[in-house]
Design a protein around this nucleic acid. Structure first.
Lengths: 305, 305
DNA sequence: CATCGAGTTGCTCATAATGCAATTCACCTA
DNA sequence: TAGGTGAATTGCATTATGAGCAACTCGATG
C-alpha cells in the first residue's frame, strides 16, 4: 500500500473523477486507475462505484475517505513542521482568487512574497465561480462577498467599500449629481450577474440602514471590467468596490461622486476573505501567505488609504 | 516519501536500532538505512543521531516520531476497518506471553482460534522479561502479576489463585501439614527471582489480610518448572498459581495442602492481564483474540473450575 | 448516429528498491 | 593495546515497480 495511492484516492473522492485527480497530481489517468485498483485490491474491498460519467464512493469508501483525508492532512502537517523547523516554509502553495481581485491585489504581491520565501512555489488560479478548496485541492481560496459554506475557516482580509464614480469628462458634460435620487437623471452602468441586476444601496450620513435607489442606464454587463472600461471612456456612472478602481481614482481617471453618502452594492457590509479547510490553518505555507497578505494589504487596506 | 520509510522510522525510533527494525519488518538492514536516509533527505532534517552503539532520536525526530506513530496507527485501524467490513479480521497478530503461561494456556488455544479466523496469521513469542508492546511492535502482551506501566491499556483475563501442594508420595512420607506454621517442618521449594526469594503468604479463613509465613527448603530456583519437576518427584512442597499446575492437580500428581487457608505468592491478589497500546483496542484482530481468550478461559478460569 | 470524454488495459522504458557483499566504526574483551 | 564483534553505511548487480503513451471500451450528449 503506498502513499500516492492514498493521496490519489482522496483526490478522486474529493473531485469525483479519476481524470481530475490525475490532472491535479500531474499524472496520467492510467496511473490513477491502477493505483486505485491496487488500493482496492489491498483492501479486498471496492471503494468507488465506476459509474459511467461520475465516480461515486462506496459506503466503505466514504468512511475510508473521511479517515484517510484527515490522516493525510495530519501527516502533511507533521511532516511540514518537522521539515520546517529552523527553515522556511517550502513546497507548493495553491491559491485561488476571483479574477479581478487576483489580478489587482494577489498577483502583484506574489513577487515580493516569493522573494521572501524562496523555497515556496505558488500556483495561482483565478476564477470567479466559487471553488471548494477541499474539492479542488487548493490551499487558500480568496472570495469577495458573502460566505455561505460552513465547514471551512474564513479569515477576513479587508472590509469592502463601494464608491460611486465617473470619469471627469462625463461629469463635466452631465454635471455632478447632488443626491442619490439625482442618479435617476444619469446613465448608470450596472452590473448584472447570476443574481440579477445589482441594486445600488445608499446610506444617508448618520443613518444605519442602506436604502435601495433606482438607477438605470444604457449598459449592463456581467463583466465588471467592461463596465469599468466604459466608465473610463465617459459613458456613465459606476458603483464599484474601492479595491477594483483605486488605481483609477488615484490617477484621477475616475472621480468620486456623492461621497457624503455611503454607497454599497450589497444590503449589508461585505468583506474580502481568505477561506481554507480548518486544518490548513496550521500549515506554515498558508500562515506565511496569510500573514504576508494581511500586512501588505494593511488596515485600512492600502487601496482605501 | 513512502509509507515503508515512515513505518521503518517508527520501528527504528521504537527499538532504537536499525537492525532490530529490519528484523521486525523482514528487510535487510541496508534497506532500512536507505529508507531512513531518504526520509531525512525529504525532510531536509536529521531525525536520528547515529551514535555508535545505539540510535537516538533528534529533537525534531522525537516530535515527528510521536506524530507519525499515531498517524500510522490511525491509518492501520482505518484500513483494517475498511478491509474488514463484512469479512474476517486478517493480517498478522503478534502475541507475547510469559513462557509458562503461554505454553500452557495460549499455545493450545491457537489452533481453534486460527481455525475460526482462517485469514489471521499469528506470531507467538514467549518471554518472561517484560516486553513493551510499542517498542517490540507486538499487538498483545500477556503478563502475570503486577502492572506498572501506565500508557498502556490492560484487560484482566483472570484472577490468579495460588495453591500449596505436594506430590502424594511426599505427603505419605512426611505427613500432611495441619497449619501454615507447620510448613517450617517441611521442605519447601521456593521460587527466587529477580526480586529475591518469593515469600509465602497465607490468609486465615475469614481474615482480610495476608500474612507471611517462614518457609525453608533445600531447593530454590528462578525457574518455576524446575521447582515443579522437583515437587512432582516428591522432593517437597511448592506454592504455585493454579494456572501453572492445574493439570497436575487434576491428574492427582499433586495434592493440595492447607486448602482451608488461602495462599498467595504476593501480598495482594494478582491477575493475569492482556496489555496493549490504547489504540490497538479498536483493532479487530486484537478484539477477536481477546474475545476468544476470554471466553475460552471463562470466569472462573477453566483451570480453577 | 456520430462524437466526445472518461476509465481501463497492454506495452515499453526508466527509475527505484532489493539483497548481498564489502567497508567502516566504535565498543568490548582478552 | 590489539583483535573481535555487532551495527550502520556504501557499492553493485538484479529485479520489480511505476510512468507514460497509445489503443480500446463504454455511456452520454447533441
Amino acid at each position: 500500500m503506498s502513499l500516492v495511492a492514498l493521496r490519489l484516492f482522496v483526490r478522486v473522492a474529493a473531485t469525483g473523477s479519476f481524470a481530475a485527480a490525475a490532472r491535479q497530481q500531474g499524472l496520467p489517468a492510467s496511473s490513477v486507475s491502477r493505483h486505485i485498483a491496487a488500493l482496492e485490491k489491498a483492501l479486498g474491498q471496492r471503494l468507488l462505484y465506476r459509474h459511467t460519467r461520475a465516480v461515486r464512493l462506496t459506503e466503505v469508501g466514504e468512511r475510508y475517505y473521511q479517515e484517510v483525508r484527515e490522516i493525510l492532512d495530519s501527516l502533511d502537517i507533521a511532516t511540514e513542521q518537522a521539515a520546517g523547523t529552523a527553515s522556511q516554509p517550502q513546497g507548493l502553495l495553491r491559491i485561488n482568487a476571483p479574477v479581478a481581485f487576483g489580478r489587482r491585489h494577489i498577483a502583484p504581491r506574489l513577487a515580493s512574497f516569493q522573494a521572501r520565501y524562496t523555497r515556496l512555489e505558488t500556483e495561482l488560479t483565478l476564477s470567479d465561480a466559487f471553488i471548494d478548496p477541499v474539492q479542488e485541492g487548493v490551499d487558500v481560496v480568496v472570495r469577495v462577498g458573502a460566505l455561505n459554506d460552513s465547514s471551512l475557516v474564513a479569515r477576513q482580509l479587508a472590509r469592502q467599500h463601494f464608491v460611486v464614480c465617473a470619469a471627469p469628462g462625463y461629469l463635466e458634460r452631465w454635471g455632478m449629481p447632488a443626491t442619490p435620487d439625482a442618479l435617476s437623471e444619469h446613465n448608470c452602468l450596472i452590473y448584472k450577474g447570476t443574481r440579477g441586476v445589482q441594486p445600488w444601496y445608499f446610506r444617508d450620513p448618520g443613518a444605519r440602514k442602506y436604502r435601495v435607489r433606482e438607477v438605470r442606464g444604457n449598459l449592463r454587463s456581467n463583466n465588471a471590467e467592461s463596465l469599468l472600461e466604459a466608465a473610463l471612456q465617459g459613458q456613465g456612472i459606476v458603483l464599484f468596490p474601492t479595491w477594483l478602481i483605486h488605481a483609477e481614482l488615484k490617477a484621477g481617471r475616475l472621480t468620486p461622486v456623492l461621497s457624503e453618502w455611503e454607497a454599497s452594492g450589497e444590503p449589508a457590509p461585505q468583506g474580502i476573505h481568505a477561506i481554507f479547510p480548518e486544518n490548513r490553518l496550521r500549515s506554515s505555507k498558508v500562515a506565511a501567505f496569510l500573514g504576508d497578505l494581511q500586512t501588505t494589504i494593511g488596515e485600512p487596506p492600502y487601496w482605501d488609504a
